[in-house]
Nucleic acid binder design. Structure first.
Length: 523
RNA sequence: GGCGGGGUAGCUCAGUGGUAGAGCAGAGGAAUCAUAAUCCUUUGGUCGGGGGUUCAAAUCCCUCCCUCGCUACCA
């Protein structure tokens, strides 16, 4: 039986600076999704990488006395390290300076040209070198006979020969596509924005430059290089081997199931990219999902405000699993979310340490002490037992899967937390510590049911907290080859008598700095 | 300016005509297996302002205020 395929991508990160929390957030989101799908029986391909061309990169490199490629190598390494430190397991890290990528860009360019969608003309306008962008007259202000952008960078009038893409020809085709594929753009409110933008009518797009040379050469042209979009967006297929497809990955994984991107680049993925693909006669991705940004105390993070929370800060403070969980939990994916050390710390303590971690610890330590350190032998199950087991089995998987289909990670976690809640309620009602004195058989049954719930929780938590979830599974002696989601539920329940290792906490409480300081004072 | 979201408990949000809800935070209690964790109870809101329709409005209509997003070539 062949597995269904699932291809997920993040945006490729521009190498004009080291990774920040936003990059980590997106990478973790994609990784959580990829892990879920792998565990749920899919053949997953997860792509991320870096966008390395452009005038800004070239200039920054030169300013630092480096060759552009050398500079890109350094920054790309930082992004790869960030993924590793966040336990983000991609299948490929693509870089747009790879030869294979360049060849792919030239191939899709050729296709678009064959379709008659590329023509040569002149692009003229007010250009800011620092921003690498043209500005409209209305976006500028004049001082001392010079023109400046609102961000206070000087602009010059520039005329440049440029290849154009006939985006205007795709207005109706795109609108029809959105209509026929209502889930193509998500969240839904982003779709509305895109549709209303396209409805205004689209202008042709300048897709080449001659003013610098750090980019992919336009086929059969001496001095044109491709400009951003054709180059950057093509990574999603160049990574799969388009056009030769020697490894068969393109055939296998394209079209992508999800392009996971930031809300700020929605337009490029929901308009330009589909138009390019239509022009080249290629299939369109199934879904483009724009996530929100992370704010802190309601404000954008910025160096000048001094409120930057870096990926490394979070790992140092909370740990990798906790950081992944906290980010996926605290914000609704698709909307902006507020994070702070306090919010994340509270969330981690309330849900991971107190609710889930302590549930495992209190159950397993009772088993260790009172059941000879083996999976207890259950007697006849009562209604309450069945009820809890059902809730923690297929029902939980189905509910969580439903949330994953919509990339609602926070809601998925809510479903899981509810099960842990129910288990805490159950353990208090059953009070196995009392049964120990009155009815050891019933105690064994209760502890068995709880161990089984913990097994299911360990399984379902793997996408979010891979290391800790697997430690939990180790503690209930689940074989490494019995950890995908097909093992959730009663059919693969724990076997009585299986020896268990000594229990150990997996989600330590986070002690807030304030509390730490207070402790030092009293000490 | 145009178009589109929001404004409900301290915080995050659910709730589209019929006695105001959840989680977290706060308060009190129970229990003592456990990571001072858990469980129970509980304080707390003229549902942005005003007007209207209705037996009845957070929910429908009008108006005003506030806030956020989109409004093309940095990514």
């Amino acid at each position: 039986m062949t597995k269904p395929h699932f291809y997920i991508t993040t945006a490729i990160s521009y190498v004009n600076g080291p990774p920040h929390i936003g990059h980590a957030y997106e990478a973790i989101g994609a990784d959580v999704m990829a892990r879920f799908k792998r565990l749920d029986g899919f053949d997953v391909y997860f792509l991320t990488g870096t966008d390395e061309h452009g005038q800004k990169v070239q200039k920054t490199a030169i300013a630092k006395g480096k060759q552009p490629q050398e500079f890109c190598d350094e920054i790309a390494a930082l992004f790869i390290n960030m993924c590793e430190s966040m336990n983000v397991k991609f299948d490929q890290f693509i870089r747009t300076t790879q030869d294979s990528h360049k060849a792919s860009c030239q191939a899709i360019w050729g296709k678009m040209q064959e379709a008659g969608d590329i023509y040569l003309n002149k692009y003229a306008g007010w250009y800011s070198e620092r921003d690498e962008a043209f500005y409209g007259e209305d976006e500028l202000e004049e001082r001392d006979g010079k023109k400046y952008t609102t961000t206070n960078t000087e602009v010059h009038w520039m005329e440049e020969e440029s290849y154009f893409f006939k985006l205007s020809a795709y207005t109706d085709k795109l609108l029809a596509y959105y209509e026929e594929h209502p889930d193509f753009i998500q969240p839904a409110f982003r779709k509305n924005e895109v549709v209303s933008f396209v409805k205004q009518g689209l202008k042709d797009l300048s897709i080449s430059r001659t003013s610098f040379d750090w980019g992919v050469k336009v086929p059969n042209s001496k001095d044109h290089i491709m400009y951003v979009w054709v180059d950057a967006l093509t990574n999603y297929i160049s990574a799969l081997g388009y056009p030769e497809d020697k490894g068969g990955n393109f055939r296998k994984y394209w079209p992508a199931d999800v392009h996971l991107i930031g809300k700020d680049i929605m337009r490029f993925h929901a308009i330009y990219w589909p138009a390019f693909l239509m022009s080249a006669g290629l299939e369109l991705p199934k879904r483009v999902f724009g996530h929100g940004f992370l704010l802190t105390k309601g404000e954008k993070m910025s160096k000048s405000l001094g409120n930057v929370i870096s990926p490394q800060d979070l790992i140092d403070r909370f740990g990798v699993d906790q950081t992944r969980y906290g980010l996926m939990r605290e914000a609704t994916f698709g909307q902006d979310g507020d994070i702070s050390y306090e919010l994340l710390g509270n969330r981690i303590n309330a849900e991971l340490a107190n609710n889930l971690g302590n549930l495992a610890q209190r159950t397993l330590s009772q088993i260790a002490k009172n059941c000879d350190g083996k999976v207890p032998n259950p007697g006849i199950l009562e209604d309450a037992d069945h009820h809890l087991l059902d809730k923690a089995g297929q029902a939980m998987l189905i509910a969580v899967r439903g949330e994953f289909e919509r990339l609602q990670f926070s809601k998925a976690i809510e479903e899981i937390v509810q099960v842990a809640n129910a288990a805490n309620l159950y353990i208090d009602e059953m009070a196995p510590w009392t049964l120990k004195k009155t009815d050891t058989e019933r105690m064994a049954t209760v502890l068995y049911v709880l161990a089984e719930v913990i097994r299911n929780l360990g399984l379902i938590m793997q996408p979010f907290t891979p290391v800790a979830a697997n430690k939990i599974l180790d503690q209930v002696a689940v074989s490494p080859d019995a950890r995908d989601f097909s093992f959730i539920g009663a059919a693969h329940a724990l076997e009585a008598g299986t020896p268990l290792p000594k229990p150990e906490g997996v989600f330590p409480r986070y002690v807030h700095e304030e509390a730490e300081q207070a402790q030092e004072k009293t000490a």
